[in-house]
Design a protein around this nucleic acid. Structure first.
Lengths: 139, 139
DNA sequence: CGAAAAGTGTAGCCATTGCTAAATTACCGT
DNA sequence: ACGGTAATTTAGCAATGGCTACACTTTTCG
């Protein structure tokens, strides 16, 4: 009988779905790009993530499959409502982590970098604590 | 001409980052298991990460290829000096993140989970700040 | 000792995310 | 309007990390 992975609590977090992180990063990026330009193109994403446009295309395809974005051939990328919702959540979370890092004395550039890595791995409880602490420091 | 990411080497971006994280997690786990048992077997790792022994084996093969562990067929897994060094670094870093989360008031279980996700994404500068703050709070 | 159980290894499948190369489409500017 | 350039799609390869199924070795126990 093959062993069947069941409850290995400590590492379920570590084994989190990388695909979700990618989705969040891309949706967040699309949202940000749409703030500045009127359209978001594949090339924008490829540049942003320093990957080839082919890779970006693959990921956009997956996002579309999962209902976060819509595209038509050779057309710009738009966020669905679901995509916008996710982007909004990610942005809030990102901002909390970023402000928290600033509040504890990390320089802005480092804080921005670290926030991108950390944001996907913070539990709601910890996030809430981060928010409390950055509010206390900045108010 | 297709845009070319600065990195000269192919397939070396996020993929590499994830592979490094996996390596760190496994080396760290092997080190911890060797603290309790006298030997570390494939099955121990498979259980720990809640994956099949096949997946664990794949990763151990890679670790061996990269010089972190040594194994012989049907024999336990041992850390090389390089592997022990990496494990030690990971353990320190993990401990700093964990203690920091405790210091800011996160409960132990959540802190343990979050630390595993966060530890791979903290810059040296932020890590140092974490260390200062947990020292200040717990001493 | 010998057979069952546990542990490992191998083959082969899939998805994701990298890439290059080449084909296709859209967008300009002359 | 046409041709060139930029953007996009498609095809196809590699590495990582998931899996099942099956073969094989080691260990354990009756």
């Amino acid at each position: 009988m093959p062993e069947r992975p069941q409850n290995s609590e400590p590492h379920l977090r570590t084994r989190r779905d990388h695909a979700s992180e990618t989705a969040e990063d891309y949706v967040e990026a699309i949202d940000q790009i749409l703030e500045v330009r009127d359209t978001c193109r594949l090339t924008d994403l490829a540049r942003r993530f320093a990957v080839s446009h082919v890779t970006a295309n693959r990921i956009v395809e997956r996002l579309q499959r999962e209902g976060y974005v819509t595209t038509e051939p050779y057309q710009p990328i738009r966020l669905t409502r679901k995509g916008k919702r996710l982007a909004s959540e990610c942005r809030k979370r990102h901002e909390i982590v970023f402000q928290f890092l600033l509040a504890i004395g990390i320089d802005a550039e480092t804080a921005a970098n670290d926030a991108e890595g950390i944001e996907h791995h913070v539990s709601p409880a910890t996030l809430e604590r981060f928010r409390e602490m950055s509010n206390a420091g900045s108010s």
